[in-house]
Design a protein around this nucleic acid. Sequence first.
DNA 1: CGTGGCCTTGACCATCTGGTCAAAAACAAT
DNA 2: ATTGTTTTTGACCAGATGGTCAAGGCCACG
Lengths: 203, 203
Amino acid sequence: MGLQKPRTRIQRKNRETILEAALEVFSQHGFRGATLDMIAAEAGLSKPNLLYYFPSKEAMHVTLLSKLMDTWLDPLRALDGDGEPVAELLAYVRRKLQMSREFPRESRLFANEIVQGAPRMQAALATELKALVDEKAAVIRGWAEAGRIADVDPHHLIFSIWALTQHYADFDVQVRAVLGPRRDPITEAEHFLDTLFTRLLAP
Amino acid sequence: MGLQKPRTRIQRKNRETILEAALEVFSQHGFRGATLDMIAAEAGLSKPNLLYYFPSKEAMHVTLLSKLMDTWLDPLRALDGDGEPVAELLAYVRRKLQMSREFPRESRLFANEIVQGAPRMQAALATELKALVDEKAAVIRGWAEAGRIADVDPHHLIFSIWALTQHYADFDVQVRAVLGPRRDPITEAEHFLDTLFTRLLAP
DNA sequence: CGTGGCCTTGACCATCTGGTCAAAAACAAT
DNA sequence: ATTGTTTTTGACCAGATGGTCAAGGCCACG
């Protein structure tokens, strides 16, 4: 029943397996589109067994989402107010793009949730996320006022970084359909975004 | 049964009502998350009545999607190869942003579909969409080669416009959560994106 | 070994959901 | 009004789905 924090190693392992399978399925079909049977098949466990480790389908989803939120904000947390402004921001863009490359499923899980109005994340957005963004926006505003980068709205600058980088994970099918069997979209994007933000930010 | 093309005015009206309700519900919950009961309630019609006008739930979805595709590409179609390059591209950005403002539901419907791998649109993306994008990309490449705009990859330029403008419709909840009860996000974005693309494109 | 607790699952259940159908209501044309 | 057609819906169905449960399997530890 309880098993708040996984104790035995078999528990840790199975919870891990289940979350991995759930991520795969949720990110591909959305919460509603995913079924316990799909997740069970993907995890190689029986359906009642899933529910031995998680109280409900929703619990799996929530667990994924809150684990994700942390990882997701890391690149922004790493933005160093004491560094060289343009270099810092370009590095942030690269880190974010790297996440789209390495964790596209996580990105899509997030996207699915937000697009549908973030029914299970409203709170986290308005507190955790907003707090961090406001903090970093203040840093960026400082740089702008000191004339070290161009004078742009810090919040929209951050939005633009999110939009541009996550686009390559979330809209991957579209990007590939349009580019055709060309080279790796994200590698191309890396160069394009470098140019874009260099030009935008130059004081 | 048949009713290929709505004939009577009552048919036209009811199909319209149903599609409007379906758009509302699909865009908010995704295809799988939407139920015929929700759509029926939203439309103020009985469930069997919906199925009198559309053969299935999927038919409603497909109808919406294909109607949408057209509207969605209009702004890009309007990009005039004979116009002044920077002005044309900035106008495109503004038209696209305008669509995010006026048709956020359509944008989210689209986003939902693409994020989940576009199971019902693959074809359209690889043909209709790709064709138009390639055509306009060629125009933009021409401008770049003639030195009339900066030398950027046309495809990724178009992606960046999509990403930045649709972000304000698709991720509206997040944008508002972060900005707090501030002014209209899209109006702010209009100015920000103007600056961004002006700087990016200057030869 | 034996035994107590952890882990696993086949069978089952209630509910939801897309879709059917036959009959009633509304309407149109004579 | 009468009759034939279109529209509408209450009742119903089969399959899917989240979740339960009791019984059996497995493992660690004495």
